[in-house]
Design a protein around this nucleic acid. Structure first.
Lengths: 249, 249
DNA sequence: GTAGCGGGTGACGCTGCGTCAACCGCAAGG
DNA sequence: CCTTGCGGTTGACGCAGCGTCACCCGCTAC
């Protein structure tokens, strides 16, 4: 006789008894009858065939409700599979981008770990100040450098940490392909602006903030630091700062 | 004052109020206090910073409990990210394999659909016959094509079904790792030979049958059809036909 | 009589919130 | 003074696909 109990189907197909009961509960696969001793489920050939189809489609990653629709004839199998393939492609893409971002973050953390706080401002010495002063004007440069020189050792440890946080977050957004003008980016730039403002002797205006962006790209001490977060990161940062200066200051 | 209410944090960070309440509920991010009017949550700078860290890690796809562990200092961020990257790689792999299986299934279904009798021989037009003729000799090609052109509509429906049965069985044997010269394989090839012979104007000789195998591999109309049964199936089929031609004809 | 097998039916748990539902505090307008 | 509306509060259910108890039943073998 081709009738099987739950346990026999388990042995035949490898699914668990719980799964079979679940399929019954959601109406995906009802047994032929439940007339066995103690209300046991009994499956027959049509149910076995249906189960095999279900397992086939499930192996492809289709959802149970979709499978039910297909088996009910309400959905074209080929069309459903094509849609599923498209979903998978999107998911693949999403994960690839995620993985790239994670990898970038890992590289940054490795870089940041090599980046001891006290080395952060070592480069800010006189020759560059002269050089910088010629390029963007005395006032901006003096204020920026002076503020940094005036920091206490505590600040020299705390401020880079905050810089680091902002830069790391920015690099992540950049890796995602966000525009420098993107709201999420601009929020971080706002943090940066606030951080800078706290250490300048007065609130920097738009021009001064833009000047700082220029300083970052032109001074190798800054630039080399930022470029560790990815080639072109400095330019990206500058663009974001310019956008902030344009729209928010 | 740098205290923010729920709505302000929503505007600042883009998360929903529900999410903030959820984070509070699971102990991931508690507000500084809930002393506002009506027990409103109030967040301060440390909470904002923590939230930004949370969002950063969440964008990387880390789970909330892992993020909590990292922020609590119980887990090294870099190590967690490395493990996460490995997870992502595995997931990527899994989805890639799934997508490949889905694509293969789609091709099979399309094949079955394209195997609708009337489309089976649509490609056999003159340009290809000329091309084929040059490659394997006039007589073989003319006979093969002529036989196909001469079929009645009934045959155009019945013959592909038999072709399909043979090809399916062959693919199964190939999947089992059987050699093209294996007796079981050769039995099926004999069926194929008989089927072909029934529709040629005379019994094809060994050379003609080998020529048909070459036709299968060289003509994309056939090849694409057969490759739907697995990459390399056409070559397998040809090898089996060659073996048959060598030993049985 | 009892132990054991092979089943049965609830019901909770997992993840990360979305989405009601029902209620509260406060300010402005009629 | 009452209403309206905003912005919040705390539950509680729902989502996918079962795994995993907990507890019960019927039949068979010893």
């Amino acid at each position: 006789m081709d009738t099987w109990t739950t346990a026999e189907l388990v042995r035949l197909t490898g699914v668990t008894a719980r799964t079979l009961r679940h399929y019954d509960a959601i109406g995906l696969l009802a047994p032929a009858d439940t007339g066995g001793p103690g209300g046991q489920r009994r499956y027959r050939r049509p149910q076995l065939l249906r189960l095999q189809q279900i397992l086939l489609l499930k192996r492809l990653g289709l959802r149970l409700d979709v499978i039910a629709d297909i088996l009910a004839g309400g959905l074209d199998e080929l069309a459903a599979l094509r849609r599923h393939a498209a979903d998978l492609a999107r998911e693949q893409d999403r994960i690839a981008r995620l993985a790239a971002t994670v990898d970038a973050t890992i590289r940054q953390l490795e870089g940041a770990r090599a980046m001891a706080p006290e080395t952060w401002f070592d480069g800010l010495d006189d020759p560059h100040r002269d050089d910088a002063r010629r390029r963007w004007g005395r006032a901006v440069v003096e204020r920026a450098y002076q503020a940094m020189q005036d920091m206490t050792p505590e600040q020299r440890r705390a401020v880079p940490a905050e810089f680091d946080r902002i830069a790391t977050a920015l690099a992540a957004l950049r890796a995602e392909g966000r525009d420098p003008g993107d709201p999420a980016v601009q929020t971080l730039v706002a943090d940066h602006y606030a951080l800078v403002a706290r250490h300048w002797d007065s609130e920097p205006g738009a021009a001064a903030y833009r000047g700082l962006g220029a300083l970052y790209t032109d001074d190798p001490r800054f630039r080399d630091q930022y470029e560790q977060r990815g080639a072109g990161f400095t330019a990206y940062l500058r663009a974001a700062m310019d956008a902030y200066a344009d729209t928010r200051i």
